[in-house]
């Protein structure tokens, strides 16, 4: 059979898989975008507004202000991770992984298309959480929270979102059951994110726990975003940047390694 059309095997497969990824999470919007937003709304209401009146984390900054960037990053990273892992698990469960592997898509195509798809979901959720935060902030402070360094705000969200989708891909690819992915998400990722400084500053911890926190890579992602929004951070922003980049690189290599070595057999 003669092809009427000429195949373009570099950008087309990548862009099509990326569009599939984005359309996938928009098709299940309630699950992928609305639920995380409702959760963040509750956090803002309870911690930011109700309990937050009695909490002072950093001099001159209200707890609501302190909380917003952390929640944005929490939503962004958690949803990016969920997107990478659930998309790949769906492919394994439904057998679509065979289609993907049998096609001319390369490992780099798959990882980057899925990562950018996950990042889109992470940024969408993060952006809407930020808007919700602005709503609360305006209600209580009668002004908007303007990011001090918007470039850093977007940069750290992007690095965090990309890194965590890649982690989700790696975890889902080596997982043998749905339980494995939930266990890693629930027992490792979520505690690391929440203990990475979403709700508190390192200044509130004892010296021992400050030292322990420095080993939590998520501290650097979250503080990078906080620097972008508030101009303050528990760690120097350059350190946060390079450790976040290192995290991104490690998670990328983990995803490449699993996709090159792992099994493409459907469940």
């Amino acid at each position: 059979m003669n092809n009427v059309k000429k195949q373009e095997l570099i950008w087309t497969p990548f862009l099509i898989l990326l569009s599939r990824e984005i359309r996938r999470f928009f098709k299940v919007m309630a699950q992928t975008v609305l639920i995380p937003i409702v959760n963040s709304f509750i956090y803002l209401l309870i911690f930011g507004v109700s309990l937050g009146k009695h909490i002072q984390v950093i001099e001159g900054i209200s707890y609501l202000e302190f909380l917003i960037p952390g929640l944005v990053m929490l939503g962004c990273m958690n949803n990016s991770y969920q997107n990478g892992s659930s998309s790949l698990l769906g492919m394994k469960f439904g057998g679509e992984i065979v289609d993907i592997k049998a096609s001319p898509l390369t490992v780099q195509h798959i990882i980057w298309a899925m990562s950018l798809g996950g990042l889109c979901r992470g940024l969408t959720v993060g952006f809407v959480i930020f808007l919700s935060g602005e709503l609360f902030y305006y209600f209580y402070e009668s002004s908007f929270l303007i990011p001090v360094h918007p470039f850093y705000f977007i940069l750290f969200c992007a690095i965090g979102g990309l890194a965590f989708t890649k982690l989700g891909i790696a975890v889902a690819f080596i997982a043998k059951t749905f339980d494995h992915v939930s266990a890693i998400g629930g027992f490792i990722i979520l505690p690391l994110i929440t203990l990475g400084g979403v709700f508190f500053s390192l200044d509130n911890l004892s010296p021992f726990w400050i030292k322990v926190s420095y080993f939590n890579p998520l501290l650097y992602f979250i503080n990078g975003v906080r620097y972008g929004v508030l101009g303050v951070s528990d760690v120097p922003v350059a350190v946060a940047f390079w450790i976040s980049i290192l995290g991104l690189l490690i998670f990328h290599l983990a995803a490449v390694w699993t996709l090159k070595r792992g099994s493409y057999q459907p469940w």
Binding site: E8, L15, I16, G95, D99
Partner: peptide, 24 residues
């Protein structure tokens, strides 16, 4: 084995598949 493609309809699936093979 039958592949299920949970979220997409027949036309979308064929368009995606065509794209994976470099054809838009």
């Amino acid at each position: 084995e039958i592949i299920t493609h949970g979220y997409f309809n027949v036309e979308e699936i064929l368009n995606f598949h065509s794209g994976y093979y470099g054809l838009i």
